[in-house]
């Protein structure tokens, strides 16, 4: 029972946890492309900042992944 719940929870964690970062990354990439189109000479700085920002946003998705992995492989409630 706990195992089934853990699997379902892990799936939900990954799927819903991916929505927010996906939207955020999409927005940030769009904004970065817009900025590069306006100022091509600043492309280096913008892309570097973009990568760092993407990594930051992605971290939330990774948190969800880690939580799901914990549920799957190191479930503290499984006893």
């Amino acid at each position: 029972m706990i195992e089934i719940a853990s699997i379902i929870a892990a799936a939900f964690a990954v799927s819903f946890g991916a929505i927010g970062p996906a939207l955020g990354q999409g927005r940030s990439v769009a904004a970065a492309l817009d900025a590069i189109a306006r100022q091509p000479e600043a492309a280096n700085v913008i892309s570097r900042t973009l990568f760092v920002g993407l990594a930051m946003i992605e971290t939330t998705a990774i948190y969800c992944l880690v939580v799901s992995l914990l549920l799957l492989f190191a479930n503290p409630f499984r006893g």
Binding site: A55, E58, T59, I62, Y63, L65, V66, L69
Partner: peptide, 13 residues
């Protein structure tokens, strides 16, 4: 901790 989990999660996944 975020540093740890980011790198670990990305590479491991």
């Amino acid at each position: 901790f975020a540093l740890v989990v980011r790198l670990f999660g990305n590479v491991m996944s």
